[in-house]
Simulated assay, not measured.
Amino acid sequence: MHIETHLALHRIRVAELRAEADEHRLAAAARRPQRLRTRLGWVLVEVGLRLAATPRTAGAVA
């Protein structure tokens, strides 16, 4: 393959990758971000459930 052809193919691929990255960035920006308050609430619920669960007792040491 000639070097010019090889270079042209690389440039085309770079352009495709950049366009795909731009689309991904736009899609990520359009997504509704999960609110910190909601995430924190669920973490607190999980911690509370773990604390309320019956504790496992360690085996008796003889």
Rank of each mutant, 00 (worst) to 15 (best):
A27H: 07
L17A: 13
R50C: 04
I3T: 04
L44I: 08
L36C: 03
R39F: 07
P55G: 06
G59K: 03
H2A: 11
A15G: 15
A8N: 06
L9Y: 07
I3W: 04
H2C: 00
A15W: 12
L36H: 09
I12W: 09
A27Q: 08
T57D: 15
I3G: 02
R56S: 04
R25I: 14
I12K: 15
V43H: 13
E4V: 04
R11Y: 01
A8C: 07
L7Y: 14
V14I: 14
E16A: 10
A53C: 07
L17T: 09
V43K: 15
A62Q: 10
R32H: 08
R35T: 15
A58N: 01
G59A: 15
A8W: 07
G59I: 03
L44E: 09
L44N: 13
L36A: 09
H2L: 11
A28P: 03
V47W: 02
R13E: 03
E23N: 03
V43N: 12
E46A: 04
R35L: 12
R13K: 07
R35Q: 09
M1F: 05
R13D: 06
A21V: 10
T38W: 03
E16M: 02
H10R: 05
R25F: 12
A19P: 06
R31N: 04
L51Y: 07
V45G: 07
L44Y: 13
V47L: 01
L17I: 14
A15P: 09
A8G: 14
L49G: 06
A29C: 06
V45E: 10
I3K: 00
R11P: 05
A15V: 13
V61T: 11
E4T: 00
V61S: 05
V47S: 00
P33G: 05
A60L: 15
L36W: 05
R13C: 05
R37L: 01
E4K: 01
L49Y: 02
R25V: 14
R11N: 04
V61P: 04
L51H: 10
V43G: 15
R37F: 11
A60K: 12
R13W: 00
A27R: 08
A29P: 08
A28N: 04
A60P: 10
L7M: 15
P33V: 01
A58P: 03
L51R: 04
R32I: 10
D22W: 12
T5C: 07
V47Q: 01
A62F: 08
A8I: 11
L7W: 15
E20P: 06
W42M: 12
R50A: 08
R39D: 09
R50E: 00
V47N: 00
L7E: 15
G59T: 14
V14Y: 14
A62N: 09
A19H: 13
G48Y: 02
H6F: 15
L36G: 11
V61H: 03
L26C: 11
L36D: 11
H10G: 13
R56I: 11
A58T: 11
A27C: 01
V14F: 10
I12L: 14
R13N: 08
T57W: 15
I3Y: 07
P33S: 06
H10E: 04
G48S: 02
A62L: 11
L40C: 07
V43M: 14
A52N: 00
T5A: 03
A58C: 06
R32C: 08
R13P: 05
A62P: 13
A19L: 13
V43W: 13
L9M: 11
A27P: 01
W42D: 11
T57A: 15
A58S: 05
